[in-house]
């Protein structure tokens, strides 16, 4: 991680100050753009009443379930596809057909098949996270330098050891990149599906406030989502830098 820089706070604070000025002095009506300090008050109130923690936990539960499912299935299938051309030829057309399809196009079908409860929401998050993970896993394994494999073979590594001791660690930076991309995608899919059909979760909180023209609550909800997304990405980066301490690009603090 890079060093702490105070000047990185300048632009967000500036935006907040201008926003405060515009809304507090009545340049635009408050139902259109609420005053930041009022939004903060609303947010604190929603925290204290337990409303925000309640919806956050529900949202996180859905996002984490869909994401973990995608991680497990995506990595496992990716490894199988990279291992066998037979398996690759079977799954590759399916992946290429479904991958470019917008997740939201599938929502009606998922609702039809799995109802509008948690199952369809988790599966929609799964669908959106699955492809970056599976594709990065395949690319990671296939991208291993064939001469590195030769070097390991000449040192005595057998087939199984090649996978566990050479291919997997070599592919790890790519696999982790796929996992990191998917954390952001999971949040996007989560909010979308909760706005379309739900009576709980942060997406619901925002859309419900909009329906009643409570713009302060809308902004408070967006604020929570923003903080949540930011924290999840920071967490993912932290895990990446710990797992890939040996990796030259990671130790330079770069996200790939």
């Amino acid at each position: 991680m890079g060093q702490f820089k105070y000047r990185k706070f300048v632009s967000p604070i500036l935006v907040l100050l201008i926003w405060q000025g515009i809304s507090a002095y009545g340049i635009v009506p408050n139902w259109f753009l609420p005053i930041p300090t009022e939004v903060l008050k609303t947010l604190v109130g929603m925290m204290m009443s337990g409303e925000v923690p309640h919806h956050t936990l529900i949202s996180l539960g859905r996002a984490v379930s869909g994401y973990l499912l995608a991680a497990v299935v995506g990595i496992a299938l990716g490894l199988l596809i990279a291992w066998s051309t037979l398996i690759e030829d079977f799954f590759d057309p399916l992946i290429e057909l479904i991958r470019p399809l917008s997740t939201f196009a599938l929502i009606p079908i998922f609702f039809l098949w799995f109802g509008i409860g948690n199952t369809s929401k988790i599966l929609i998050i799964f669908k959106s996270c699955f492809f970056p993970i599976v594709i990065n896993t395949i690319a990671g394994i296939k991208g291993v330098d064939s001469k590195l494999i030769m070097a390991a073979q000449s040192l005595g590594a057998n087939g199984f050891q090649l996978w566990t001791r050479v291919l997997l660690p070599s592919a790890l930076p790519m696999i982790i990149t796929g996992l990191r991309i998917s954390t952001a995608i999971a949040m996007m899919a989560l909010v979308g599906v909760e706005m379309l059909s739900s009576d709980s979760g942060l997406g619901f909180l925002v859309i419900d406030a909009q329906r009643t023209f409570d713009t302060e609550r809308v902004f408070a909800g967006i604020g929570i989502l923003s903080i949540l997304g930011f924290s999840l990405d920071k967490l993912a980066r932290y895990i990446q830098s710990k797992v890939l301490a040996w990796h030259s690009e990671t130790s330079l603090g770069g996200g790939m």
């Binding site: 330098d145 001469k147 590195l148 030769m150 070097a151 390991a152 040192l155 005595g156 590594a157 057998n158 050891q161 001791r165 050479v166 660690p169 070599s170 790890l172 040996w246 990796h247 030259s248």
Partner: peptide
Amino acid sequence: FQEYLLFPWRTVEGNIEFGPRMR
């Protein structure tokens, strides 16, 4: 090899021990 082809996730010691560990 000319390109060294070390295992980047292993330390110097870990690289040297790779062969014996596999055996």
